[in-house]
Amino acid sequence: MASNRQLSDECTAHLEQALAETDPEEKDFHVRQVLQACGVDHLPEETNNE
């Protein structure tokens, strides 16, 4: 499903840092930051909890 959402500057910066890192743990850290900061902030108003 296509989405028109834009990532925040903070999320974009973390993803760029993840791409630049050579240490897998540091890469994981930055990706987790994006999932935590951006994933939760953009949940739909209504969810189907069936």
Score class of each variant (00 low, 15 high):
Asn4Arg: 06
Ala13Gly: 09
Ala20Trp: 00
Ala20Tyr: 00
Glu46Ile: 07
Glu21Pro: 06
Glu25Lys: 06
Asp9Leu: 08
Val40Gln: 07
Leu43Asn: 09
Thr22Ser: 15
Val40Leu: 05
Glu21Gly: 09
Leu19Pro: 01
Asn4Trp: 00
Glu25Gly: 07
His42Glu: 14
Leu35Thr: 08
Leu35Ala: 15
Gln17Asp: 13
Ser8His: 03
Glu26Val: 05
Pro44Cys: 03
Gln17Trp: 07
Glu21Asp: 15
Gln33Ala: 11
Asn49Phe: 10
Val40Asn: 05
Asn4Cys: 05
Met1Phe: 08
Ser3Leu: 08
Asp9His: 02
Met1Gln: 06
Gln33Glu: 09
Pro24Lys: 05
Ala13Tyr: 02
Glu10Phe: 02
Asp28Met: 10
Asn49Ala: 13
Pro24Glu: 12
Glu46Tyr: 08
Glu46Asn: 02
Arg32Cys: 03
Asn49Asp: 12
Glu10Trp: 01
Leu43Lys: 06
Thr22Asn: 14
Gln33Tyr: 00
Leu19Asp: 12
Gln6Ile: 09
Glu16Trp: 00
Leu35Lys: 09
Asn49Ser: 13
Gln33Cys: 13
Glu26Trp: 00
Thr12Tyr: 02
Ala20Thr: 09
Glu16Pro: 01
Gly39Ile: 06
Gln33Asn: 13
His14Ser: 09
Asn49Gly: 09
His42Leu: 11
Gln33Arg: 10
Thr22Gln: 14
Asp41Val: 10
Pro24Met: 04
Glu25Thr: 09
Gln33Val: 01
Cys11Ala: 15
Glu16Phe: 00
Glu46His: 06
Leu43Ala: 15
Leu35Cys: 14
Ala37Ser: 11
Gly39His: 02
His30Ile: 03
Asp23Asn: 15
Leu15Gln: 11
Lys27Gln: 13
Glu26Pro: 01
Val40Ile: 12
Arg5Cys: 03
Glu25Cys: 03
Ala37Val: 11
Glu45Asp: 13
Cys38Gln: 08
Glu45Gln: 12
Ala37Glu: 14
Cys11Met: 05
Arg32Ala: 08
Cys11Val: 06
Glu10Ser: 05
Lys27Arg: 14
Asn4Ile: 04
His42Arg: 14
Met1Val: 07
Glu46Thr: 07
Ser8Tyr: 02
Leu43Gly: 12
Glu50Asp: 15
Ala13Pro: 03
Ala13Met: 07
Glu45Cys: 08
Lys27His: 03
Gln33Trp: 00
Cys38Asn: 02
Ala2Leu: 13
Thr12Val: 10
Thr22Trp: 01
Leu35Ser: 11
Thr12Asn: 13
Leu35Phe: 04
Asn48Thr: 10
Gln36Thr: 12
Glu50Asn: 14
Met1Gly: 14
Val31His: 00
Val34Met: 07
Pro24Trp: 00
Leu7Ala: 05
Leu15Pro: 02
Glu21Ala: 15
Thr12Ala: 07
Cys38Ile: 04
Met1Asp: 12
